[in-house]
Amino acid sequence: MLIWLSLCFLTVIAAYFLGSIPTGYTVAKVLKGIDIREFGSGSTGATNVLRTLGKGPGAFVFIVDCFKGVLAILLVKWLGEFAPVSNLLPDNVVIGVWLPWLVVLAGLAAVLGHSKSIFLNFTGGKSVATSLGVLLAMDWQVGLAAFGVFALCLGISRIVSLSSICAAVAVSILMVVFHQPLAYLLFAIAGGAYVIVRHQSNMQRILAGTEPKIGEKVEVSSESVVS
C-alpha cells in the first residue's frame, strides 16, 4: 500500500513539473532573446507570446501548453490501467472510486505548475491552455464544448482574456450537462475560479476599456533584445 501511495504522489509531482515547463519563456528566449515576462501582460502564456512574437510562436506555445495538461492526465490514467495488473494495489481499493480524484489532483498540479513554474521562480502564465488540455484528457466532449464557448466569445469580443473567463465559468455547467463525476465538477469549480483570479488585472482593463484585442501586437524594441 505504501509503495502504491508513493506512486500516486510521484505522479502528481510529475504533473506539476509537466505544467511547469516554461514553453512561452523558452520560445521568446530562443527566437528573440527576450524575457517574455517583461513585455505585454507579463504572462508566459500563448496570448502574450502571440501579441509579442506573432501568430506562429503563439500557436506553438498554445499547443504545447495544452499538451502538457493532456500528458499529465494520461499519466494518471496509465497508472489506473497499471493498477489491476500490479500487486501493489490492495484488494479493497476500487479503481473507479479513487481514479477520478487522482486525475483531479494531477490536473490541479499541472495548472498550478503552469502559472507558478518552479523553473521561473514561481511565475508563469494564466493556465488557460493547460486547463484546456486537462479538460480534453478528462472528457473530450467537455473540453471541446469549453473550447467552443471560448471561440464563440472570442469571435464576438475579440478579447482573449474575456473569452477565457467565459469558458472558465462554462466548464462547471458543462460538467453537469455531460454527467461527469463529482471530482471532475469540483475540479471545474476550483480550476475555473483559479483561472478567473489569474485574470484579475485583465478584468480591470476590460472594465476600463483598455484590454488589448486579438491582433494587437506588443512592440519589441531593439534595445530590449538580448544579443
Rank of each mutant, 00 (worst) to 15 (best):
K126W: 07
Q180C: 08
N121H: 08
I156L: 14
V220G: 04
C166L: 15
V218T: 14
A137C: 02
I118R: 04
Y194Q: 03
A167E: 08
E223L: 05
V103T: 15
C8H: 07
D65R: 03
M203R: 05
N92R: 04
C166G: 04
H114I: 03
F122C: 07
T123S: 13
N121W: 06
S201K: 04
V93P: 00
T11D: 13
S201V: 02
L112V: 14
V97F: 03
T23G: 00
L53A: 10
S224K: 15
C153G: 15
F17T: 09
S117I: 04
E211H: 13
T47I: 10
E38M: 11
W140M: 11
A83L: 06
S201Y: 02
G107A: 13
V12Q: 14
F9P: 02
L102W: 04
L182Y: 02
W140H: 09
G133N: 00
I95R: 14
N92P: 01
I214Y: 11
A168E: 07
I206G: 10
A137W: 02
A14M: 14
C166I: 08
K213A: 13
V61P: 03
S221E: 02
N48H: 06
P90E: 05
S41T: 07
V160L: 09
A170H: 10
K217V: 10
T44D: 01
K126F: 06
G96R: 04
M1C: 03
L186D: 01
